[in-house]
């Protein structure tokens, strides 16, 4: 019982972490159609800025200020870079963020050095909150879950329930019409991009000290955030949450399965041991394959429905 509870809890924690890491990207990809390859770089930037602020002042100031700094930077990038590129199409936008990621990565190394920086969990949250079956649960993990849920609620409420959200969504599909109604469409896009970057920065603030803040953290984030965003469906915040939780749970459950693939298939009546040419495949234990799972899910879901789980549009 404890084991099951533990697996569910770990899956939930990981799922919410994934949502936190990808929420900013959902916003930008979904609302602007820009495949932002610099997302992980803004995430990394958030962690580094938070490190500097928390050494100068404290973590709580960093929690508020660092995302604002990253968001402001995002606004500048949109206004002076992305906007000029926009007329050349989505491909050019994507490539712009590609180049931006390279530059941010190098500049971070120039400012903060090549070594990991000592960005630590604040002492006020550095204690075990409760324990299940001998495994302690640190308070900071619960705090992370809380922030992630908070991000979801705010995003969802803003986009679905406010006038601002309505304008943003309308600006995407009918920019001319929205402009005609007296809204400043370019400014809406700047705000969306800045918001997405701020969310990435916030994820960096929260995750940077729980894990490790080093120049490789953007690279380590990898393609998983894209998997979440696309699997959930472009532009769907709740889809992204569902996708995150599915990936989190499936991956955590498969970590717990030490069974070999051949044994697993045997359980369901497929006996494959005889096919020795593929013995490498049968020897893979399910837990080793866990990290491939999100991408296989992505491929399967997209092959069935190009709109993802809850997407309103295909591209």
């Amino acid at each position: 019982m404890d084991q099951l509870l533990l697996i569910l809890l770990n899956g939930l924690v990981y799922g919410l972490l994934l949502f936190m890491l990808s929420s900013g990207l959902t916003l930008i990809v979904g609302m602007m159609g820009v495949l932002n390859f610099a997302h992980a770089s803004f995430y990394m930037l958030g962690a580094y800025v938070a490190f500097s602020i928390s050494t100068l002042m404290n973590f709580w100031v960093a929690l508020i200020v660092a995302p604002l700094v990253v968001g402001a930077l995002g606004a500048l990038v949109e206004q002076y870079g992305l906007r000029a590129v926009h007329k050349h199409g989505h491909l050019a936008e994507l490539l712009f963020t590609f180049g931006l990621a390279m530059i941010i990565g190098e500049v971070i190394q120039l400012i903060w050095g090549r070594w990991p920086v000592a960005y630590r969990v604040p002492e006020s949250l550095d204690f075990p909150l409760f324990s299940i079956g001998g495994t302690a649960y640190p308070a900071y993990r619960m705090f992370m879950m809380g922030v992630s849920l908070f991000m979801f609620v705010v995003l969802y409420a803003t986009l679905a329930r406010t006038r601002l959200g309505l304008v943003v969504r309308a600006a995407l599909t009918h920019p001319d019409m929205v402009a005609m109604l007296g809204h400043n469409v370019p400014r809406v896009f700047t705000m969306v991009f800045a918001g997405g970057c701020a969310l990435a920065g916030l994820a960096g603030v929260i995750a940077g000290n729980a894990y490790q803040t080093d120049p490789g953290m953007a690279l380590a984030l990898g393609a998983i955030v894209f998997a979440v965003v696309v699997m959930g469906g472009l532009g769907s915040i709740s889809g992204a949450l569902i996708a995150s939780l599915i990936i989190g749970l499936v991956q955590t459950v498969s970590i717990g399965l030490d069974m070999k693939l051949s044994t697993a298939l045997g359980r369901i009546g497929l006996h494959v041991d005889g096919i020795t040419a593929l013995s490498d495949v049968w020897d893979i234990s399910i837990n080793r394959a866990a990290p491939v799972v999100p991408f296989l899910l992505l491929v399967i879901i997209l092959a069935i429905n190009p709109r993802g789980l809850a997407g309103s549009r295909s591209s």
Binding site: Q3, L6, I7, N10, V13, Y14, L17, G133, G134, T135, R141, A207, Y211, G216, A220, G222, T252, I255, G256, D258, N287, R288, P291
Partner: peptide, 23 residues
Amino acid sequence: VGVERIPMGKIKDFTPYIAKFQA
């Protein structure tokens, strides 16, 4: 009691593995 390999640099959260060590 256990033999395990994880993909390089892909795991953020090691808690599930620690739970396995415990178990």
